[in-house]
Design a binder for these strands. Structure first.
Lengths: 210, 210
DNA sequence: ATCGAATCCGCATGGAAGTGCGGTTTGGAA
DNA sequence: TTCCAAACCGCACTTCCATGCGGATTCGAT
């Protein structure tokens, strides 16, 4: 299956260079190349790309914003960020906006083509230094969230989740096929274990958003 | 510079196979191979590895736990998880515990060796499908945190925060110097604006942890 | 001048939640 | 075999919350 790829990159030289790289692969077709986010947003639907290679540093609208808007009009398109920036802020923002891959511009051509294949097969190609930034994020938030972890039993965890969804004890009992009184017991235990005053604080402290 | 690598893997066959792969690289030396987490924890300091290849599915103590303990006694060691499991739970847990890389066991030898190099150079090698799981985590928490904003008034926001802290209406009223009845009114408005059933769900949806 | 939003307050009523006690059974760890 | 955690259930009692109604003032925008 041939992958249809579009390029969004303001530098003409780099844009053409990327197109050349794409041409060297038999299973990749470069269906479009845009010099700005605005141009891409206007025309990209007609090009029907599977994958978009997106520069971050575009004039006016940044590539990160463009990712969000692209994902709105074409939710299934896979976006790979191509950039010289390696700061966490940009990385996280881009990923949150829906990018699936993140390569530094210095990546060799074969890595780029490999990334295009990966991303169409449900992977998330990332330059290894980018990945480290992401992993560091987990090192940061992980312990912070987890040190404060309470040894809730699986059943208690379930109850807590249903509390967070706004159900009352009777409904929770029905969903779990247990008595309302039992739910009440679990909530008591949860509040004791978490050292909180009531179920609302327990839910807040547990960070459950659904 | 030669990288000193240790292996923790309970399957003897796979352990020896990994050792063989390491031997094929000129810049890698296999300094130790353990069949259990306990053995590794006891002896690994003497081996002074730069990198540890860690299986997850070990008898008794899991590789994930072992990562945490290894990082305690040797904070600078780089750990690469080798596993057949691709579920987010294990991935996040391992990363939070201090793992720097995460490869599926089916990765080809050259990827493994590349990963060892990457990890010593500050990268985070990850199988592309693993990376996708991590990226999906950002897709999940990202928009949930910043797009789904409700137009709560400042006062309503304050009340919501105090709810998350577990206070009852009377206490909130006292803190804000307003009547309990007014607090009740705010909570009504909050629940209406957020389209939730009760204050507990409102708190859950608002992601307030303090 | 009128409208809406934000802030503020009150009350009645039924249902929900919290507290404190009690209990059983099962299954695994010490 | 003893002990404990987990899962399960019950009741009495108090307090708290949710709902639905009503009202007030202020302040900025149309």
């Amino acid at each position: 299956m041939i992958k249809r790829v579009a390029i969004v990159e303001d530098d003409k030289g780099l844009r053409e260079q990327l197109a050349l790289v794409l041409k060297t692969a038999a299973d990749v077709e470069c269906v479009a190349a845009y010099g700005s986010a605005e141009e891409a947003l206007k025309c990209i639907e007609a090009a029907r790309p599977d994958v978009v290679l997106m520069d971050i540093n575009l004039p006016r609208m940044s590539g990160i914003e463009c990712v969000a808007k692209l994902k709105e009009i074409m939710p299934s398109v896979q976006i790979i960020i191509l950039t010289v920036y390696e700061d966490s802020e940009r990385i996280f923002h881009a990923l949150r906006n829906g990018a699936s891959g993140y390569l530094v511009k210095s990546s060799p051509p074969e890595k780029l083509l490999e990334a295009i294949t990966d991303v169409t097969q449900g992977g998330s190609p990332m330059s290894t230094h980018i990945a480290r930034k992401v992993v560091q994020h987990f090192h940061m938030v992980g312990p912070a969230l987890e040190e404060e972890q309470y040894p809730l039993s699986p059943r208690e965890q379930e109850v807590l989740e249903l509390l967070a969804a706004g159900y009352i004890y009777k409904e929770i009992g029905d969903k779990l096929s247990i008595a309302t009184e039992t739910v009440r017991t679990y909530v008591k235990h949860i509040c004791q274990k978490m050292h909180v005053k009531n179920k609302t604080e327990a839910v807040a402290k547990s960070n459950l958003t659904r």
